[in-house]
């Protein structure tokens, strides 16, 4: 097991109280596994991604643990987390277009970044990886503004994986791209895994069909909790959670890109996470809801590697 997340709780502090954005999520990730993390915006997937590498200022670690390669990550303590970042856990951010310092040449930035982590820059390796993503060597002598959007994205992908992290988090990295570029990004990420640049990967997206092309396992989240987790083909072809079922059926057909708007095809809105009522959080929108749903449905492994948190599915 590369990664083990156990009952992780991360809340957002706001003036009105704590928003329970991530409320007791447990899952594991094997060596070489790519996990697709899907759900509507606000379901906690981005919070989960951030929790694994860097909490932002308003987030606080309330409970639960994260274990990577047998070590417990101090995710609540920013400074103590630093040694693990980049080397064990790394991130391809949503904002790849603006992730590089605009006033440094890229090569120099990479060198300074590595030096600050007391790592030596292996220039041959860097050149090899640039070639792999079809970037010419001379991008290192350029400023970010001289690169096209796609080039910047690939450059950031190379930088983030340079130290061969055990876990790579890719946070909504395809949402701003056109379909053909999305495919290329997905292929590149797969290549990184196959070559051992990264051991395992969490691919966060709201686009299930794209996830299906890349992920071994898909985890669907709803309102800060795990809804369903299963091998990709199972989630797409035989989902058990009513939310997943609605999600999948709202897609025109698997493999065709689906737009964000489609999700509003499920009537209703996710509940407020400020002071959520006990019980299943989907029940207000769920066509199958019954009295039992007033109690929290625990995640149950209904068959091997298929976890569902729903009273109807168990």
């Amino acid at each position: 097991m590369t990664l083990e997340v156990d009952d992780l709780r991360v809340y957002y502090r706001t003036l009105k109280g704590d928003v329970q954005a991530l409320d007791g999520v447990s899952f594991g990730l094997r060596d070489g596994e790519i996990l697709g993390l899907a759900g509507e915006s606000g379901c906690g997937k981005t919070t989960l991604g951030k929790a694994l590498i860097r909490l932002d200022g308003r987030m606080k670690h309330v409970g639960g643990s994260v274990t990577l390669d047998g070590q417990v990550l101090p995710i609540g303590e920013d400074a103590k987390m630093n040694p693990y970042r980049f080397k064990q856990v790394s991130l391809i951010p949503q904002y790849s277009m603006s992730a590089m310092n605009p006033t440094r040449k890229i090569g120099r930035m990479v060198r300074e970044l590595l030096e600050s982590r007391r790592e030596k820059l292996d220039l041959d390796e860097l050149h090899k990886r640039l070639e792999l993503v079809e970037l010419p060597k001379d991008v290192l002598g350029k400023y970010p503004i001289e690169l096209s959007g796609g080039m910047k994205q690939r450059m950031v992908m190379v930088i983030s994986t340079l130290l061969n992290p055990s876990l790579l988090i890719a946070d909504e990295i395809t949402s701003a791209l056109d379909v053909s570029t999305q495919k290329a990004v997905v292929t590149t990420l797969k290549g990184f895994r196959d070559r051992g640049f990264v051991k395992s990967m969490i691919f966060i997206t709201h686009d299930i069909s794209l996830t299906n092309q890349l992920a071994d396992t898909i985890m669907v989240m709803y309102a800060g909790k795990l809804a369903e987790k299963a091998p990709a083909s199972t989630v797409v072809n035989a989902p058990k959670h009513p939310y997943t079922q609605l999600l999948i059926s709202s897609l025109p057909e698997v493999g065709v890109r689906y737009a964000d708007k489609r999700l509003t095809g499920i009537p209703g809105n996710p509940p407020s996470l400020l002071k959520p009522e006990p019980g299943c959080r989907f029940r207000a929108r769920c066509p199958l809801a019954f009295e039992k749903c007033a109690e929290d449905p625990p995640p149950v492994e209904v068959e091997k590697d298929h976890v569902v948190a729903c009273w109807k599915a168990a």
């Binding site: 790394s90 991130l91 951010p93 904002y95 310092n101 930088i159």
Partner: peptide, 8 residues
Amino acid sequence: NYMSALGA
């Protein structure tokens, strides 16, 4: 933010 996430 990116640099912080990479532990700089």
